[in-house]
């Protein structure tokens, strides 16, 4: 799939043209959270199409990771609603939300580093292997087939990221780039409808970033899911994202296609400071 034209949908949002007649995978309405008196995120409303690659950008401290934490209910929203595949995620636990279809990675890698690479993925597959405690204790035959199935699926996912030869290594011992890929593989193992990537290119060199971009496209095309990413690498964001949402001080200051965002004066101001009289630079 190449980039698609962005078209408006009801509720003042845009999604790729191919996703127009389908329920958006993710919708938020007036989402917000307060930490004490501070409105860390406020009036955050977005719509993400079912196969859209979208970007969430903004200066440091804008509240991007907080948005991810709200979407996965790591933080309880103070106000607003989140619709995942048309269903509200209110009062659901983080684990339940994952089962409903959101997976994510972290800014700082959080693998189960003492477990093997393949076991990390298999923990992700946890959801989908139909294996209760009773089954694993009594029905040894069923256990064996489901174990073999999970092993096969885990290997498939690893080979998707060219990591099949590392399957039995300890996750913590992998090189940095491989750990980042493993984290994405682990998240994909939970069979999400949308995967949230928190700064996937952090600490990568240009060739690794190029590979990552390719991988993100392949994830979308292969698994037919939406990808939402937080990223500071503008080259990556402008290159692969179809819709971009810019956050500053917890508020959405702009939404649109890469071209619209690039030329939006509010965005330039947020990143570089005001042109007149403003010498203060952005944190980027």
């Amino acid at each position: 799939m190449s980039k698609d034209k962005m078209v408006p949908v009801p509720s003042n949002a845009i999604v790729p043209e191919r996703d127009i007649n389908k329920i958006p995978i993710l919708e938020t309405h007036h989402l917000g959270i307060d930490f004490g008196g501070l409105k860390a995120v406020d009036e955050f409303s977005i719509t993400v199409g079912r196969t859209e690659i979208s970007g969430l950008i903004g200066p440091n401290g804008a509240g991007k990771t907080t948005v991810f934490n709200l979407l996965t209910n790591v933080y309880q929203p103070t106000r607003g609603t989140i619709l995942l595949d048309g269903k509200s995620t209110a009062k659901k636990s983080t684990a339940q939300i994952n089962k409903m279809g959101i997976a994510r990675t972290f800014q700082n890698i959080r693998l189960f580093s003492n477990m093997s690479v393949i076991d990390n993925v298999r923990v992700g597959l946890h959801n989908s292997t139909n294996q209760s405690l009773a089954a694993s204790l009594t029905r040894l035959f069923g256990y064996k087939t489901s174990e073999r199935k999970s092993l096969e699926e885990a290997m498939e996912l690893l080979s998707f990221f060219h990591m099949d030869d590392m399957a039995n290594r300890q996750a913590g011992s992998l090189p940095y780039g491989a750990q980042r890929r493993l984290e994405i593989a682990r998240a994909l193992a939970t069979r999400p409808g949308i995967i949230l990537l928190d700064e996937p290119a952090a600490g990568m060199n240009p060739s690794e970033t190029a590979e990552l971009m390719e991988n993100i496209r392949r994830i979308r095309d292969n698994f037919n899911i939406a990808v939402m990413l937080i990223e500071h690498d503008m080259n990556l964001v402008m290159n692969i994202c179809e819709g971009i949402c810019v956050l500053d001080h917890g508020k959405v200051i702009a939404k649109g296609s890469p071209d619209e965002i690039r030329s939006n004066p509010k965005v330039i101001e947020a990143y570089l400071g005001k042109k007149k009289g403003g010498v203060e630079g952005g944190e980027e």
Binding site: T94, A95, N98, R104, V123, H126
Partner: peptide
């Protein structure tokens, strides 16, 4: 070897990440 056992190891390493993998802590 078991799913619950793996879940236990995952929770013991990183409770929050385990929860985001759909494990009921």
């Amino acid at each position: 070897k078991t799913k619950i056992g793996k879940g236990m190891r995952a929770v013991s390493e990183d409770k929050d990440a385990a929860e985001l993998m759909g494990i009921n802590v």
